[in-house]
Structures are given as structure tokens and as C-alpha cells.
């Protein structure tokens, strides 16, 4: 085919292709290396089980075991955002792929969206296996009275979370070798602040008014409100929610919009800065 005959695809089609193209190696790659199923399904349950037994040792109310299982399941997505999206942007630079992405006539967000979609595949398998293990091994019982609300919360939590991941990715474009430290720094402290293993309202019970502000500050991370809202939907009678459910859903919708806009602006800005400072293709720094 000669060049003149080539019909340029529309902007939307090109970017959708980019999303599929970047998601493809992750999903296909995962299928070519089936050993990940063991590492990503069975093994993560063990650490979550330790928290379950910690509550059991203290004769905690039954719903706390459910809270741990939900939190443990959601760690899969947080880890995916940190390591397979934000930090991955840094590794793409190190491996020489970033320059190829940047000269392609597509949105950076499409590539990151593809990473998110591909990464969500393994994360969802891991999250589901944790939930199933919680039900089968620990007899966790959820009551899903409002499935639509649950789906809404989950979808907007994911959109906001991966929007934040895209924003982080722009920072990793500039960061050098300390990217590893940054991702590590955002693991345990975020597990603590976002209440992965306890209800976020616990901060209010322990610290009083300052605790409210700690929880409110942590709510900038979408998974904080997402987790609290999911616990409220799955344990409507028992859970002591941080904010009313509809407020949390509304906040998640707002965070989705804010993070996606910030991600776009931030990616453009950081790309300009990186180009100006000559750091876009600089490796090993």
C-alpha cells in the first residue's frame, strides 16, 4: 500500500487502538506465564489471613473479618496503580519504550489507560480470589442489598484511583531512581491512612476531632472513601461509616473528574518540563 492510500484513522479510533495495544501484552503475557496465578491468588491470601487471626485473637466482632477481607482484596488495585502504572512509566523510560510512546500520535492517557486495563485483569483475579477465600475459609458473609450502588462505588473508585495513578505517572516521568522508594513509601503509610484493615471512622474514635481531619485528608486517596463505602454497602447494619453513603459516592465522582483532568494537565506539563530539561530519555539517573 502506498502512503497516499493510507487512510488515517480518527483520533478516537487511534486512541482506542492504543488502549487495546498496551493492555494486550499484559493480558496475553499473563496467560503465557501461568505461574502468576499461584503468586497472585494463593499467596496474597496468607498475609490477609494474618490480619484476620489478629482480630480473632482479640475476639473482635465478626464484621471486622469482613472488613479485612475487603481491604485485602483492594490492596491488589493499589499495588497495581503504584507498581504497574506509576512506577512502570519510569521503567518504560529506563527500557527505552517511553520515547516510542511519546513520538506516537496518540494521547499519553491512552497508553496509561491500556496499562490500567491490562493491570486490572490480574488485580481483579487477585481481588476476587481474596474475597472467595474470605467466604470459604473464614465464613465471611456479605449482604448486598443494593447492587447498583455497589457497582457505582466500585466503578468510580477504580476510575478515580487509576486517574490518580495517571497523575502519579507524570511525576515518575521526571523522577529518577528514587521512584522505587516513592512506591515503597506509598504502600504501608497508605494502608494505614486509607484504613485497608480497619474502618476509617476508627481514627475519629481514637483521636476525636483531629481523627476526623486525618480521615478527611486521607479521603483524597479515592480508595479510602471507596473502601468505606463498600463496607457500608456490604454491612449496612453493622458498619460505622465515615460519611453518609451518597456523600462518599458523590465525592468519588468528583475525585474521578478532578484526577482525570489533573492527570491530563500534569502529563502535558511534566512532558514539557522533561523535554526542556532533557530528562525525557535520560536513563540510569
Amino acid at each position: 500500500m502506498i502512503f497516499e492510500d493510507y487512510e488515517k484513522p480518527t483520533w478516537l479510533r487511534m486512541n482506542l487502538r492504543a488502549v487495546v495495544g498496551r493492555a494486550y501484552p499484559r493480558i496475553i503475557g499473563a496467560n503465557r506465564e501461568p505461574s502468576w496465578v499461584f503468586f497472585e491468588t494463593f499467596l496474597p491470601i496468607l498475609a490477609v489471613s494474618a490480619y484476620v487471626y489478629f482480630y480473632t485473637a482479640m475476639n473482635a466482632p465478626d464484621q471486622f473479618i469482613g472488613y479485612v477481607i475487603i481491604g485485602g482484596a483492594m490492596t491488589a488495585y493499589w499495588m497495581n496503580v503504584l507498581w504497574s502504572m506509576a512506577a512502570q512509566w519510569f521503567w518504560e523510560k529506563e527500557m527505552g519504550n517511553l520515547e516510542l510512546f511519546l513520538i506516537a500520535p496518540i494521547s499519553r492517557m491512552a497508553i496509561l489507560g491500556g496499562m490500567a486495563l491490562g493491570g486490572m485483569f490480574t488485580s481483579t483475579v487477585r481481588a476476587l480470589s481474596t474475597m472467595i477465600a474470605g467466604i470459604l475459609l473464614f465464613g465471611v458473609a456479605f449482604s448486598l442489598h443494593d447492587p447498583l450502588m455497589f457497582i457505582g462505588i466500585f466503578v468510580f473508585t477504580m476510575l478515580a484511583l487509576y486517574g490518580m495513578g495517571m497523575m502519579f505517572a507524570s511525576l515518575y516521568m521526571l523522577w529518577g531512581r528514587e521512584a522505587w522508594h516513592m512506591s515503597n513509601l506509598l504502600t504501608e503509610p497508605i494502608y494505614l491512612a486509607s484504613g485497608f484493615y480497619f474502618p476509617i471512622k476508627g481514627f475519629v474514635h481514637i483521636l476525636g476531632q483531629p481523627g476526623f481531619w486525618v480521615a478527611a485528608g486521607a479521603s483524597i486517596i479515592p480508595i479510602t472513601l471507596g473502601l468505606d463505602a463498600m463496607r457500608q454497602v456490604l454491612y449496612p447494619a453493622e458498619v460505622d461509616g465515615f460519611l453518609p453513603l451518597w456523600v462518599e459516592l458523590l465525592a468519588l465522582v468528583l475525585l474521578t473528574g478532578i484526577f482525570l483532568i489533573l492527570a491530563k494537565l500534569s502529563l502535558e506539563h511534566m512532558e514539557k518540563v522533561a523535554k526542556r530539561e532533557g530528562r525525557l530519555t535520560m536513563r540510569w539517573q
Binding site: E188, F198, G202, I206
Partner: peptide, 27 residues
């Protein structure tokens, strides 16, 4: 920050879990 915050946060997760259950009258 990384060297200090990471280990302390890891321990504080358990401390908060313990304190919440203590307040609820757990064992």
C-alpha cells in the same frame, strides 16, 4: 522519610486495629 515512615506506618496499622477493638470491649 522513607526509612522512618514505612516501618512506623506498618506498626501503626496494628496499633490502630488493636485500639479499635479495645474500645469496643474486645479481648
Amino acid at each position: 522519610v522513607y526509612s522512618v515512615a514505612k516501618p512506623i506506618a506498618g506498626s501503626l496499622i496494628l496499633v490502630v486495629m488493636y485500639t479499635i477493638i479495645a474500645q469496643l470491649g474486645g479481648d
